[in-house]
Amino acid sequence: MSSLDASAAAKTESRNANRAMLAEFWFYFSQNRGAVIGLFVFLTLVLIALLAPLVAPHDPNFQYRDNFLTPPFWQEGGNVSFLLGTDAVGRDILSRLIFGARFSLFIGVVVVTIALSGGVVLGLIAGYFRGWVDTTIMRVMDVILAFPSLLLALVLVAVLGPGLVNAMIAIAIVLQPHFVRLTRAAVLSERNRDYVVAARLAGAGNLRLMFKTILPNCLAPLIVQATLSFSNAILDAAALGFLGMGAQPPTPEWGTMLAEAREFILRAWWVVTFPGLAILITVLAINLVGDGLRDALDPKLKRS
């Protein structure tokens, strides 16, 4: 009976420990006011993207033939049914921005997932096994890093053919080396710690040591890098879209919207300003969250 009690006590204790870790994390994260604001903006964005069909006032691709280049509602000639105005073919900009959020977040998630998982595996292998494996992997990464990133992405897209999926793959490949280097550096500093030796003595094999023992202790810098890459991916995707190599019209992707609006910059400021602002705010918010994560995760590493 008493052993049952003890085991129940241990279970609650274990839950408490998790909760304490979370509480501590939130304490340090919330110290950084910018990060909290960033998180709030980002969550709002996610919500808008998820509820886009409900929130958006119009179909993003429907062309209102009577309303080419209608200015935002507060300007002369504006129309309250098109809050942020319309573009050159009469589509509602607000609705396109709202649906564009879906693409941007989707791009961020996919790119970071590909780059992170590939980068972590390569970095772990390089840092754990050292020797020629390490040298080979790192030299290849150095070669990738030696190209200007956008140029490399452009070349890759040119080879693979323009389109959103190919653009995401290209961006992921460009961002991957950063994850590899970061993981490798973290693994190098952890692999000779006593607890790794102890796990090896307890009989842990290479795979267990790499993924269960070492990797969880390398996560903090990776999480920070992942957030920053998330915004980078959105930015790069927008750039590729702007250059006509990313999402193809009439997709309401923010970069593509900018590209379509190029010729109207002087006549209708709103067609370029709002997509640009959307990109700016999103990237800024995510970067702020990344900073907050760094603050929250780094002191923990120093303490243990």
Partner: peptide, 22 residues
């Protein structure tokens, strides 16, 4: 492996920070 085990000097480095005691 079961025949020999070791206890290290630094108790702050010899336990995996992400692993519960159990």
């Amino acid at each position: 492996r079961q025949a020999v085990q070791i206890v290290f000097q630094n108790p702050y480095g010899s336990l995996n920070p992400r692993q519960k005691i159990g």
